[in-house]
């Protein structure tokens, strides 16, 4: 119970921080915001690493392996494409 309350507290506060931070992003940058936050949602790779690293059966190891690959594709693809996109935004010289 204690742990649940703690986790819920973290969850609720993080949602508020999220709302606060994102509402200030201008439409100009909505696509990089999406791909950037997309990369952050790949954070599930941490869970995938833990699950794969502690696999007790072959089945679990395979599930974990696929999860690591997919999540890491999400992370690297997301951050890299955001970087590429942001590099194109420039002011009038």
């Amino acid at each position: 119970m204690e742990a649940l309350v703690m986790m819920l507290t973290v969850f609720v506060l993080a949602v508020f921080v999220g709302f606060e931070v994102i509402s200030k992003v201008p439409p100009l940058l909505h696509t990089p915001l999406m791909s950037g936050s997309n990369a952050i949602s790949g954070v599930t790779v941490l869970g995938a690493i833990i699950a794969t690293g502690a696999a007790v059966t072959t089945g679990m190891r395979w599930l974990g392996f696929v999860a690591v690959v997919l999540a890491m594709t999400n992370v690297v693809g997301g951050f890299a494409v955001t970087h590429r996109m942001l590099g194109m935004f420039r002011r009038k010289k």
């Binding site: 969850f11 993080a14 949602v15 921080v17 999220g18 949602s41 954070v43 699950a51």
Partner: peptide, 17 residues
């Protein structure tokens, strides 16, 4: 599931966004 605050915070940030 994993009792992992890192995932909870990051996930909810993206969820909110």
């Amino acid at each position: 599931v994993l009792n992992n605050n890192g995932l909870i915070i990051s996930g909810s940030l993206v969820g909110a966004s």
